[in-house]
């Protein structure tokens, strides 16, 4: 049961990060050429692969599972709350939604200004390397934290790879229409799963006895989902009330 929740959590989180990385890669490839862009992508993926191979087994073999779950639980709580908070603020209209098309256009404009290189293009390499490495680093952190705590690092890595492959194929097909991806809804789902795993593992690592053991993750997701829905509804109501008051005063 928790294997499927783990797979979905890693898949959604990796998809969101992959969409953000793909926006940068497409902007770089279409503006500066594909050869150096792909070299940058390959170098970033290679570096990330080394990080997983270096830290994954070490975490699993040398850190006691209880300690791992306390640390990972704390990290997931922080990261999940940050994601969920942003998604709630976007949903309630307090924060602009992430517009991948706008980011793409800005990146294209920025890259077009730099002088074109013949052969190896260091701008394309650096931009795609940084984009893929930084977004990929977040995927690596999620894979390592969720995977090692659940003792299913292989499944977590597979889920991330499937997500990256799916986003890459769809991204290549739709080219720059990445704004169609329901990014905020996905971020909300990921935030809910991360804080649920975080609460569960932090508690379990410290000796809390969860009723139903792993099944608690499901009711935690449902509970946090209901709470988030109520927070969004009340925040939207507040925002609309303030707008109405200002309009009636004007």
């Amino acid at each position: 049961m928790s294997s499927s929740v783990l797979f979905i959590a890693v898949f959604l989180a990796s998809s969101v990060e992959a969409v953000e990385a793909l926006t940068i890669v497409l902007a770089s490839g279409l503006t500066r050429g594909w050869k150096s862009t792909f070299q940058g992508v390959a170098a970033a993926l290679g570096t990330l692969g080394i990080l997983v191979v270096a830290f994954g087994p070490a975490l699993v073999h040398y850190v006691p599972i209880k300690t791992l779950r306390i640390v990972v639980g704390g990290l997931l709580l922080i990261y999940g709350l940050q994601w969920l908070r942003k998604a709630i603020l976007r949903q309630a209209g307090f924060k602009a939604k992430h517009d991948e098309d706008k980011i793409f256009d800005e990146k294209v404009a920025e890259l077009s200004k730099a002088p074109k290189a013949v052969g190896y293009d260091s701008t394309a390499f650096t931009v795609s390397f940084k984009g893929v490495f930084l977004e990929g680093l977040e995927v690596v952190i999620i894979v390592l934290t969720l995977g090692t705590s659940a003792h299913q690092i292989g499944l977590a890595a597979l889920s991330a790879l499937v997500a990256i492959a799916v986003v890459s194929v769809i991204g290549a097909a739709v080219s720059k229409q990445l704004s169609k991806v329901p990014e905020n809804t996905m971020k909300m789902g990921v935030g809910l799963m991360l804080i649920s795993f975080g609460t569960f593992w932090a508690g379990e690592g410290l000796g809390v006895n969860w009723p139903g053991s792993d099944l608690s993750i499901i009711w935690l997701i449902a509970l946090y989902g209901i709470a988030s829905g109520l927070i969004i509804a009340y925040s939207s109501y507040l925002r609309k009330s303030v707008v109405r008051t200002k309009e009636s005063q004007a």
């Binding site: 709630i88 804080i195 609460t199 006895n209 509970l223 946090y224 709470a227």
Partner: peptide, 15 residues
């Protein structure tokens, strides 16, 4: 009571 208190605390932090 820990399984009830911990999620409640997380919700308070989110709110």
């Amino acid at each position: 009571e820990a399984p009830a208190i911990l999620p409640a605390l997380v919700i308070v932090i989110l709110v």
